[in-house]
Amino acid sequence: MKSLVFRVFAVFTLVLVAAVSGCGQKGPVLNVYNWGDYIDESVLHDFEKKYNIRVNYDTFATNEDMYVKIKAGGSTYDVLFPSDYMIKRMIDEDMLEKLDFNNIPNYKYINDSFKNLEYDPNNEYSVPYMWGTVGILYNKKMVQEKPDSWGILWDKRYAKQILMMDSQRDSIGITLKYLGYSMNTKNPKELEEAKQALIKQKPLVLAYVVDEVKDKMIAGEAALAVVWSGDAIYCMRENPDLDYVIPKEGSNLWFDAMVIPKGTKRKKEAELFINYMCETDVAFRNTDYIGYSSPHTEAVKKLPAEIRNSRTAYPTEEDMANCEIFAHLGSMLKEFDRIWTEIKSN
């Protein structure tokens, strides 16, 4: 009896396995791992049709989620979309393949100022996908003056009307900028000062939020919020009373780029995909759909003038004068976490 049941069970399992793997037999499959809601998905269908490669598309919510999944092994992705500091970390830990740029001729469309950045100094591993800044989104009807400094987030007139970002690095980072330090500092004295400033600010803060910030600002629930530029563009489209500014002390400049992890069996196809994503039409459709800023020179030219000339989406050199890119902090991350816990449990 026991062995019969076991045999039935075994046959059933085999059939199931065969069925699942059978799906993959029709053509090569490319496994793509991107941020949620960060692509015009019709682009993927067109890629499948054009090259007869099936795309298996998954999404993640944070760089750390993605990193943990790749690092743990077992999951085989061929193309990833991490941010700057995470790319640096993955390069340092020998997790990425060097790209063969002969297979990515469309790389020439990428704006030169987005090449050879700190996280990938010789530009061997990554092709930029989107970029943006962190700044203050404010409601013109509720804030009298145009904010130009992070200091407005410490202004008692706006008590309980301020939304901070529930993200350790971003919130501590802008505070360091406000105090005149680097966002990537490892100096305990400077970090202590930032901690004290954030504790002092806490009574003025309405809430620490991430995704809800969009709904709240559009509905006029708060006057000021720390946001990513892409979210700012979305909110300003929905509520014309809102405006975005990069404070004069400088801010965070960030990039999400396409990379290929070590261990892929489809490097050629992955490079083909990256090249495809840099086709002018494809890059345009993506940036038009998600609203974030594209590093693609030709795609930007196709955008409507009001977006192309918007200082929110495409800030001037002068706006970005004091901006910094996040560096990978290594074990200092724990220190940031301790500071953040102290602020939040105060």
């Binding site: 944070t62 750390e64 989620d65 943990v68 991350l333 724990k334 940031f336 976490d337 816990t341």
Partner: peptide, 13 residues
């Protein structure tokens, strides 16, 4: 609960 989530998802500790 937040503290535990932070350790796994943000800090990686």
């Amino acid at each position: 609960g937040n503290l535990i989530e932070q350790q796994f998802l943000t800090v990686g500790d």
